[in-house]
């Protein structure tokens, strides 16, 4: 069975690699300038324009590549915000004892009860729609989930004999955290962050579709889909390409996370 799982990892990494490769390429070479409207409105795919043009005459493939930058930026940004804040808060909560532990547990339960999308919409409502706001909002919502996971993992690790042994050997807490706690919780937290990255990409796309994420003229895939909706029959490629790109990236991220989990967790490798 584990062979099939490593196939998942390979497929996942290949799909993510495809998107990352295309985005890296976009920094070196773009088929057209992003604001070049010389192609004429809604031309069919083929010729100079691989995927045709949008309703303003901009090259769709160029827009798609730029949307890829935004999608990857969202994934990385939200994971950075959520990972740093979440792991930090989770570590503190994991070391808390007595009433502080109860307060930490209840606070995290409360924070986690807020749905990501509503929290993001609330922050956007206050701070205005922009890519940075969307990333920050998604990252903050993610931080609560990561913090709760980290807290539970830290509590488990702290009961282990090797921690007691390290304490008896006179090793300081900071060095125990760096040397024993973080390496032991790392794989599980990383896999969770990878899954969250996929959700972050979908959340940003939803916000942008609703007009609450990346403002025009920047081409977020969610925004491109909103703009393509009115002309879905005359220009179907414009309505298909960004959606397919989203699915490729998110399936890739999810498969990679699944594969990584099975690599790092021997108990799952056997049972599935």
């Amino acid at each position: 069975m584990s062979r099939r799982r490593s196939v998942h990892l390979a497929i996942g990494l290949a799909l993510v690699g495809l998107v990352v490769g295309a985005v890296l390429m976009s920094y070196l070479w773009l088929p057209f300038a992003p604001d070049d409207t010389s192609g004429g409105r809604l031309t069919a795919p083929g010729g100079d324009h691989l995927l045709g043009t949008d309703k303003l005459g901009r090259d769709l493939f160029t827009q798609l590549l730029i949307g890829g930058r935004i999608a990857l930026g969202t994934a990385l940004g939200a994971v950075a915000v959520g990972g740093v804040l979440g792991v930090g808060a989770g570590l503190l909560a994991g070391f808390a004892t007595r009433w502080r532990d109860d307060v930490a547990a209840v606070t995290l339960d409360i924070l986690i009860a807020f749905p990501t999308l509503l929290l993001a919409m609330l922050i956007v409502a206050g701070a205005g729609a922009s890519l940075g706001t969307a990333i920050l909002a998604i990252g903050l919502a993610m931080a609560a989930i990561v913090a709760r996971l980290t807290r539970v993992l830290v509590k488990q690790v702290l009961t282990r004999d090797y921690i007691t042994a390290a304490r008896i050997a006179g090793i300081s807490w900071p060095r125990i955290v760096l040397g024993h706690v973080l390496p032991n919780i790392g794989p599980v937290v990383l896999v969770n962050l990878a899954l969250q990255a996929g959700l972050a990409v979908l959340a940003e796309a939803s916000l942008s579709y609703l007009g609450l994420g990346t403002p025009p003229p920047n081409a977020s895939w969610g925004r491109m889909l909103f703009e393509a909706q009115a002309t879905v029959l005359t220009a179907p490629v414009a309505a298909l390409a960004p959606g397919l790109a989203l699915v490729v990236l998110v399936v890739g991220v999810n498969l990679s996370a699944d594969g990584l989990r099975d690599l790092t967790d021997p108990t799952r490798r056997r049972s599935r």
């Binding site: 796309a205 879905v232 309505a239 959606g243 989203l246 999810n254």
Partner: peptide, 13 residues
């Protein structure tokens, strides 16, 4: 991995 709004758009089409 399919965003709900995209599926809706395809179903409309």
């Amino acid at each position: 991995a399919v965003p709900a709004f995209w599926l809706g758009l395809l179903l409309i089409a």
